[in-house]
Nucleic acid binder design. Structure first.
Length: 193
DNA sequence: CCAGACGTTGTT
DNA sequence: GTCTGG
DNA sequence: CCAGACGTTGTT
DNA sequence: GTCTGG
């Protein structure tokens, strides 16, 4: 499970985590950055306590509708880094509804292909999300203790995710994503009970 | 057919 | 948008 | 997911 | 204990 995370990664670190190219600090003269198109990165607020409803940089392979494959190098295709809100708000959500980012912030990979709300996104709406780590709470009697999960070498974690776009009654488009989960690794089993 | 839901966790 | 329940 | 509230009457 | 809000 993952419902709370830490992300203070720079755009270049995010790009590297996704395996996307970056500009060299030497050549540019102003420090390195993603060498792929970016969108709305200014909306990202680095935080040690990111929760659903907040923006995170997401990596995707953008393909414009109507140019599914074989188009030549238009800027509507290829890798892109875009800010999206954590917590899937499906495109079919009513325009007047209040978006609920907490209802679908995770999708079980074991069942994602069977779930009506997710399966339609698998082919064309995959994306990646990079964070430094995430939090799990352990119940000790009546108390809850948060633990921070991360790699010892500080390599970012890269989650598989699915995204969608929702348009509200004002015509504003909100991009959201859900992080795929899987069974806990054996080294984290102690945290799950 | 139409109406209504569409998810996850972790638990005894 | 797509599946389930009635 | 966690944190915090959890209500009614009758009013400016 | 259970629901709402973030």
């Amino acid at each position: 499970m993952c419902g709370r995370a830490r992300c203070t990664l720079s755009p270049a670190e995010v790009a590297r985590a996704f395996g996307f190219p970056t500009t060299s600090a030497n050549a540019g003269g102003g420090g390195d950055g993603p060498a792929v198109p970016t969108l709305h990165l200014n909306r990202f607020r680095p935080s040690y306590n990111v929760l659903p409803g907040a923006y995170l940089p997401v990596g995707a392979m953008r393909a414009l509708p109507g140019c599914a494959h074989g188009g030549g190098g238009s800027d509507g295709e290829g890798p892109v880094i875009q800010c999206m809100k954590w917590g899937l708000v499906p495109s079919f959500t009513g325009k007047a509804e209040k978006p609920d980012y907490f209802r679908m912030f995770n999708a079980r990979s074991e069942s994602v292909k069977e779930k009506v709300s997710f399966r339609r996104l698998i082919q064309k709406n995959r994306c990646l999300v990079a964070v430094e780590g995430f939090y799990e709470w352990k119940k000790n009697g009546s108390k809850k203790q948060p633990y921070y999960i991360h790699f010892q070498d500080h390599r970012p974690l890269v989650f598989a995710a699915l995204y969608d776009a929702w348009t509200n009654s004002e015509g504003e488009i909100t991009h959201t994503f859900t992080i795929l989960t899987t069974h806990a690794s054996t080294s984290l089993n102690w945290l799950h009970g």
